[in-house]
Design a protein around this nucleic acid. Structure first.
Lengths: 168, 168
DNA sequence: ATCCTGAATTCATTTTTTGAACTCAGTTCG
DNA sequence: CGAACTGAGTTCAAAAAATGAATTCAGGAT
C-alpha cells in the first residue's frame, strides 16, 4: 500500500521525512481499536468465542488466563459489544452465564483471520492446523482488499486517503 | 462464519457446548501472532510506519510512548521482520537509524486496516478521518474474504476447516 | 449439614510500564 | 576552546498491571 501520492517520474528512493501521523491518536479508529484489542487476552478470548467456547471455566482452562483477568476482559468485551451474556443452566444447577459472540463481534473476526494468515505465514515453519474455507465449496479463503462491487485490489494498489487532518 | 458443519435439519438453537478449542494455543498462528501484536504499542508503531514516520524521536512524540518501551518494541519488531533498520544522517550529523516497514510488515498492514474498519464503525460516531482507496480509481476499499481466484465470499458463508487437531 | 461447582473477588507477590534523569558521540554556537 | 544541543538510547526508582492462590458466594447434590 502506497501512502503518498508518488509522482510517476520520481518515486523517492529515500522518501521525504514524515514526522507526524496525518491522523491524531484520539481521532483514529485504528488507534481506538488498539485500546480494546491491544492486550494479551482479548483477541484470544474472541478466538475462543469463534470456536464456540463460551463458558468461564472452559475459557480459563483453554487459555490459562487468571480468573480476575478473564472476568475483567469479559466485562469489557460485553461492554464493547463483542460478546453478549446469556443465562443458562446445566442440569438443575444454578443459573450461570455464557458469553456468545455478537454480530458485531463476528465482524471483528476478520481481524483474527488477518492475524491468523500472517501468523501462519511468518510465525511457523510447518503447515497451519486450520484453514478458512467457503462452506459451500470448500474453497480456501484469504483476506483481501476489495472495492464495493467486489473487485479484489492488491495491497500495493491501495493508498490512504486523508479526509480530515489532525487537529492536534 | 459458521464453525460447525451444522446438519441442515437441525441448526441447534442452543448450540452444543464446546469446551475446548480445536486448535492448541501453541499450534495456532493467530495465538502466536497475538504474542507479537497483543500489546499497547506494537500495532500503533506499525501504524506510524505505514504513515511513513520512521524515526525514534518522531515516533515517541506522536505516540507519547516512553523511550525504553519504544526501544524494546523496535528491537522486537525488527527481530520479527516487521521493520528494518537503516542508517541515515541528517545534514552532517552522526549516523542514526530509521525504521522502515518491510514487505513482511506491509503484509501485516491488512490487520491494521481490519482494525481500522471495525474501529471506525463501532468506536466512533462521526465520519472516519481516513479511507483506504484504490490508488488508480479512488474507489473505496474494504476488507473481505476471497477465494484464490478473486471471488468475494461473505463472512457468513465461511467456515473453519480443521486440518489437524489439538494434541494437548 | 456438608460438600461440590462455576463464577467470581480479594490480596499479596511478581512483572511490566512508566517517566525522569543520565549517557554518549558528534555538532553547532558563542 | 568550552558550553549547549541533538537524536537515540540506558538506567533506575516508582507506579501500575498481571498473576496465582486463597476466599467468597449462591445454589444443588449427597
Amino acid at each position: 500500500m502506497s501512502n503518498s501520492d508518488a509522482k510517476p517520474d520520481s518515486p523517492p528512493r529515500t522518501p521525504r521525512r514524515v514526522s507526524q501521523t496525518p491522523v491524531a491518536m484520539d481521532d483514529c479508529g485504528m488507534a481506538r481499536a488498539t485500546d480494546l484489542f491491544g492486550d494479551r487476552w482479548t483477541l484470544l478470548i474472541l478466538r475462543e468465542a469463534l470456536y464456540g467456547v463460551t463458558r468461564f471455566e472452559d475459557l480459563r482452562a483453554d487459555l490459562g488466563i487468571p480468573r480476575a483477568a478473564l472476568s475483567q476482559r469479559l466485562d469489557r468485551m460485553v461492554g464493547a459489544g463483542l460478546l453478549s451474556r446469556h443465562p443458562y443452566r446445566e442440569g438443575a444447577s444454578r443459573t450461570r452465564h455464557e458469553y456468545r459472540m455478537t454480530d458485531q463481534g463476528m465482524e471483528a473476526v476478520i481481524v483474527l483471520v488477518a492475524l491468523m494468515d500472517w501468523g501462519d505465514r511468518y510465525l511457523r515453519d510447518d503447515t497451519p492446523p486450520i484453514d478458512v474455507v467457503e462452506a459451500a465449496t470448500g474453497d480456501k479463503l484469504s483476506i483481501a482488499l476489495t472495492t464495493q462491487d467486489g473487485r479484489v485490489v492488491p495491497l500495493k494498489d491501495a493508498k490512504m486517503n486523508i479526509l480530515r487532518h489532525r487537529k492536534a
